[in-house]
């Protein structure tokens, strides 16, 4: 059983970190996992994305064309990756920055104002964890507690002050998704 997640957005939105949190949680849960970043010139001020694959066996390719889930944190990411999500998969869109809603009708989708929710929590930088929380509601590939434990265990020392806010952001995203998720027909 293998699950592929693409997280995409602008550089500076915590895209790569969000993927790492999932990767740490998967590793600590005893799963195989790969975290593959877009790297190189495109990262500077442009788009950033990463692919996280979770599996119960040795992982082949760390990149897939058709992921099981997408977190699109901005408009270009939605345009680029929405068409590629596997039918029956999950699409989480940051409605605060997207110019449109989800067009696919064969996926579970949630349009979540992640920046708005993050600002209400006191820090716009929490939008990434809001989106991750929403994804976990639609794609329960990891327990929320496992992801929170990963934050506790692996958040760098100098970011310790952000531990509680990050966990609140996960919960806020999950709660929003439970109320607003659009399930595929």
């Amino acid at each position: 059983m293998q699950t592929e997640i693409i997280i995409a957005g602008f550089g500076g939105q915590g895209i790569l970190f969000a993927g790492q949190v999932l990767a740490y949680a998967a590793m600590d849960a005893g799963m195989e996992v790969t975290w593959f970043p877009s790297y190189g010139p495109e990262m500077r001020g442009g788009t950033a994305n990463c692919t996280v694959i979770l599996s119960d066996q040795e992982i082949g390719s760390p990149l897939v064309k058709h992921p099981q889930a997408l977190i699109a944190m901005n408009a270009p990411s939605l345009d680029k990756f929405e068409p590629l999500v596997r039918p029956g998969g999950v699409v989480v869109v940051n409605a605060s920055l997207a110019h449109r809603g989800i067009e696919r009708t064969d996926v579970k989708g949630i349009e979540i104002p992640a920046n708005h929710i993050a600002e209400e929590l006191g820090d716009r930088r929490l939008a990434n964890m809001v989106a991750v929380g929403a994804m976990l509601t639609l794609l329960p590939v990891l327990e929320m507690d496992q992801v929170k434990q990963a934050l506790r265990d692996h958040l760098p020392e100098r970011r310790r002050n952000l531990l509680e806010p990050n966990m609140r952001a996960l919960d806020a995203g999950a709660a929003y998704a439970r109320e607003h998720a659009v399930l595929s027909s």
Partner: peptide, 10 residues
């Protein structure tokens, strides 16, 4: 190669 260098795995 660049992918092995840049990716993270346990």
């Amino acid at each position: 190669d660049g992918s092995i260098g840049q990716m993270m795995e346990p």
